[in-house]
Design a protein around this nucleic acid. Structure first.
Length: 878
DNA sequence: CCTGAATACG
DNA sequence: GACTGCGTATTCAGGA
């Protein structure tokens, strides 16, 4: 096989990576985002392309030979930000660690180096892959030279060969130069012919083939275009000269210098550690060996293995850590328990603990203080063994989440490493990952667990200080910690499921799906995998000739909103929509739920993730019980399978009405919005009256629908485009709506502006209860990122404060049910509603108590409104 | 084993 | 001119 050479345009890729990734700096305070992005791309190239030769080419200095032709070459270009320039030396160090050659040449650009070397390589019969973000490089494409361009960001790439280029742009590689000569390039300050864009240029080239030929036959061009071409003939030819990549630049490096023989794992992982690229460590080979080495560097630790427990083990305050090697603590086997206090470290087999009165008494004594990581996980797991853990006073997981929800690794070793404690290995290093997870010998296990438990001790004061500085102690102690225990109870209790009902629905769906499937094949004239958009696309848009509405990066979009627009164009479309709808029900909600129902009890135990969302909401997994269908009747029937756990009981549900808009009214202190809610008016009608300037009687259904969309949009941090899409109106009309909305509710307008301004100052936004969210992208130079961050700044205090409120309501309700000695139990929380099960006799009381608690858990300047309902199944609680 | 498209919820 | 509404989870196909 031919040798493979990869040539990377270093500046271009670093530049792309820099703007694609948030401006993160590592613990040493140096910016690393460009280096990081470059590295992920490099690792992928090495893994996928497996090159025999490689080079990273860089631009040299400020001036190039092109400046002699044209002084203003690359003029007007923004100066490279210093945050990026400072990363180039680091990048070169990193390449050295990878043993990858890099090269630059005075007076020449990376393009010319690549152009020259790719020519020589091609002559030798090598296959070349050029990697860049710059379309100019496409002129190098040939039978043996592919050019891979980054699209959005850096992970998203497109590989061009001559055929793909022809398909995509309609031109040959050598015409790329003529194309650029005509259309110019703003970023390099290449003039081209003003008024000629890509479309016109391609058209001209299709007709005339080359720039030279175009001007020879200029008489064939008509009108304004001809005039423009003639007036800027010189510009066009100079531009052509500028964009032509030199294929004979005087490089002092040869193909023989580009041989790549792999890198030293040790060197690369050291530089990764140095730069703080923890997540990439797993991608360099030999991590086993590395783990061993890391383990050897750990300080000695002495763990006492005990099976007979005595009171002396417990000092009054201990860290307790319960290990499970699998995520789902409702089923995972407990590997052991570690107790660490200021004196000693103990490892206790779980059965020894469960059988020990001393241990169980200690556990359930709330006056004995316990420090843990993930109280909910710990408590639920121990409960399965009959151990009731009480007196939890510190939860490192929740503390870490509150300090910065955007950190995505809230495990003990990651938190510790962030805080400068390296005395622990990552779980993956000790236990392995994914399918390779395995229990180490008990000595190793005990040591690793003890190290983690010890860190609870070490980190407690630090994180609590930080919570205090953030004014988050109340949020932590009075909201999240008590909530964790309530959620634990809910999860452990589970929800009863009517398995037979689910199976019956599944049977019916199965036959209906089969029927539709056959009809679709009939209409398509062939069979294919109906679940594959990739296979469906060509059938719809090529074979059946339906109009293409939207494309995805991998092909035609066949999403529901596209299909809906094609609904009357072909009989097959409605069938597809129904197939999708029913297929989702079958696979996710029938089969998916049946898989996780406990065979003995017929209950489902979800897990609520309390330390995940960026806004403070909960999420639910394994299964997700927060997205059980409701909007369409077909799907809603799934809820008939969720039933009370005892005969004579009912499902009882209470939900907040428009909590987010009410929260908005309160924080924005908008008088009109507040008044509307105080007077109990229909808020969407009210908005319609304001926006359309009409009386209540004159509000049509259409007007109300539009007003409703605007209200939603406002909560999400509206954009004209977003609103225009959701209402299928023009952007101009959408803008009109938004402007009129903000005129009508001036308080909201001020709130939106102030929130974004303050957030830019401080770098974060907060909620009612001082939940924090950092938004580094607010200062991004990337338009899209910045805009998205601004919308997030507007939305998070609203969504997050609503989350605070319902969480507090859950705690209050839990107390209240206790006080009132009711048997009713909380089962689920779905963002703005609570689902309980209760004896029928309690219905009348609950109808008062639950809304009472939810409505009064906080006092806002607007009333909170709660609607309740109940019935024999969840479906009926509507 | 991971990613992207699609679809479910608030 | 940027190509776009906020927050989630699961399933399937398809490519390493």
């Amino acid at each position: 096989m031919a040798d493979k050479l990869v040539l990377i345009d270093g500046n271009s890729i670093a530049y792309r990576a820099f703007f694609a990734l948030p401006l993160l700096n590592n613990d040493k305070g140096i910016y690393t985002n460009a280096v990081y992005g470059f590295t992920t791309m490099l690792l992928r190239i090495l893994e996928e392309d497996k090159p025999d030769h490689i080079l990273v080419a860089f631009d040299a200095g400020k001036t190039t030979f092109r400046h002699k032709t044209y002084e203003d070459y690359k003029g007007g270009r923004q100066k490279t930000p210093p945050e990026l320039s400072e990363q180039f030396p680091v990048l070169k160090e990193l390449l050295d660690a990878f043993s990858i050659p890099h090269y630059q040449l005075e007076q020449y650009e990376a393009d010319d180096i690549i152009g020259t070397l790719s020519q020589s390589a091609e002559k030798k019969g090598w296959d070349v892959n050029v990697i860049s973000g710059d379309k100019d490089l496409l002129q190098l494409v040939s039978d043996h030279i592919d050019v891979t361009l980054t699209r959005k960001g850096i992970s998203n790439v497109e590989k061009y060969d001559p055929a793909f280029l022809a398909d995509k742009m309609g031109i040959r590689p050598d015409q790329v130069i003529d194309l650029k000569a005509l259309m110019g390039d703003n970023s390099d300050n290449i003039p081209g012919v003003p008024g000629v864009g890509e479309k016109t240029a391609v058209k001209l080239l299709k007709q005339f083939d080359t720039l030279e030929n175009l001007y020879e036959n200029i008489t064939e061009v008509k009108g304004k275009l001809k005039e423009k071409l003639e007036n800027h003939k010189d510009d066009a030819f100079m531009s052509k000269q500028l964009v032509t990549i030199k294929r004979d630049s005087p490089v002092t490096i040869g193909l023989e210098d580009l041989t790549y023989e792999g890198y030293s794992n040790r060197g690369v992982s050291n530089i990764f550690k140095d730069l703080g690229f923890q997540s990439l460590l797993g991608r360099v080979d030999g991590s086993d060996q590395q783990a061993e080495e890391a383990a050897e560097e750990l300080p000695e630790i002495e763990v006492e293995h005990v099976t007979e427990l005595t009171d002396e083990v417990f000092t009054g305050t201990e860290a307790i850590y319960v290990e499970m090697l699998h995520e789902n603590y409702h089923h995972a086997e407990i590997e052991g328990i570690t107790i660490v206090n200021k004196d000693k470290k103990y490892f206790i087999p779980v059965d020894a603990a469960a059988e020990s009165d001393v241990f169980c008494e200690w556990a359930k004594n709330a006056r004995k203080r316990k420090w843990v990581f993930d109280a909910k996980r710990t408590v639920v797991a121990l409960l399965r063994k009959g151990i009731h853990l009480k007196g939890v006073e510190f939860d490192l997981l929740l503390a870490s989440y509150l300090i910065n929800p955007s950190e995505n690794n809230h495990d003990i070793p990651s938190i510790a490493h962030r805080m400068g404690e390296t005395s622990v290995q990552y779980d993956e290093e000790v236990y392995g990952r994914g399918a390779k997870i395995k229990r180490p010998d008990v000595e190793k296990l005990a040591e690793h667990m003890a190290r983690k438990a010890t860190l609870l001790y070490k980190l407690k004061d630090k994180v609590e200080e930080q919570l205090k500085a953030n004014h988050q102690l109340e949020l932590y102690h009075d909201l999240e910690m008590p909530l964790a225990l309530i959620l634990g109870e809910m999860e452990h209790r589970g929800v009863q499921v009517d398995v037979e009902r689910l199976k019956d629905m599944g049977e019916e769906l199965r036959s209906r799906l089969k029927e539709i499937e056959e009809q679709v094949y009939e209409l398509a004239g062939e069979t294919f995998n109906l679940n594959s958009p990739k296979q469906l696309g060509p059938i719809l848009f090529e074979k059946l000739g339906l109009p293409v509405i939207k494309k995805t990066k991998t092909g035609y979009s066949t999403s529901a909103d596209v299909l809906e627009q094609l609904e009357d164009k072909h009989e097959i479309i409605p069938k597809l929509l129904i197939y999708r709808q029913l297929g989702k029900l079958q696979s996710t909600y029938i089969e998916g739920l049946l898989k996780v129902v406990d065979n003995d009890t017929h209950k489902i135990h979800t897990r609520f993730n309390q330390a995940l969302t960026q806004t403070g909401r909960l999420s639910s997994t394994d299964p997700n019980l927060q997205n059980i269908p409701i909007r369409l009747e077909e799907g809603r029937k799934i809820r008939q399978a969720f039933i009370p756990s005892k005969p004579g009981w009912v499902m009882f549900a209470s939900d907040y009405s428009q909590i987010e808009l009410r929260v908005l009214a309160h924080i924005a202190q908008d008088e009109k919005l507040i008044a509307a809610f105080k007077e109990g008016r229909d808020i969407h009608t009210q908005t319609a009256m304001e926006v359309f300037k009409v009386e209540a009687e004159a509000v049509t259904g259409e007007m109300r629908r539009h007003a409703k969309a605007v209200n939603f949009g406002i909560v999400y941090g509206i954009s004209e485009y977003g609103l225009s899409q959701s209402l299928s109106i023009t952007r101009k009309e959408a803008k009109e709506f938004i402007d009129r909305y903000l005129e009508s509710y001036p308080g909201v307008k001020v709130y939106m502006e102030e929130t974004v301004r303050d957030a830019k100052q401080t770098g974060f936004v907060t909620t009612f209860m001082n939940r924090k969210r950092f938004l580094p992208d607010l200062t991004s130079r990337n338009f899209n990122r910045r805009n998205a961050a601004e919308r997030t700044a507007m939305n998070t205090p609203i969504q997050g404060s609503a989350a605070d409120i319902i969480k507090k309501a859950m705690i209050d309700l839990h107390h209240r049910l206790d006080e009132e000695k009711l048997e009713a139990n909380l089962l689920l929380q779905v963002h703005d509603e609570l689902i309980l099960e209760a004896p029928e006799e309690e219905i009348e009381q609950l109808k008062k108590i639950v809304p009472d608690v939810m409505e009064n858990t906080v006092e806002l300047d607007v009333p909170l409104k709660v609607d309740s309902s109940y019935g024999p199944t969840w479906y009926d609680a509507k």
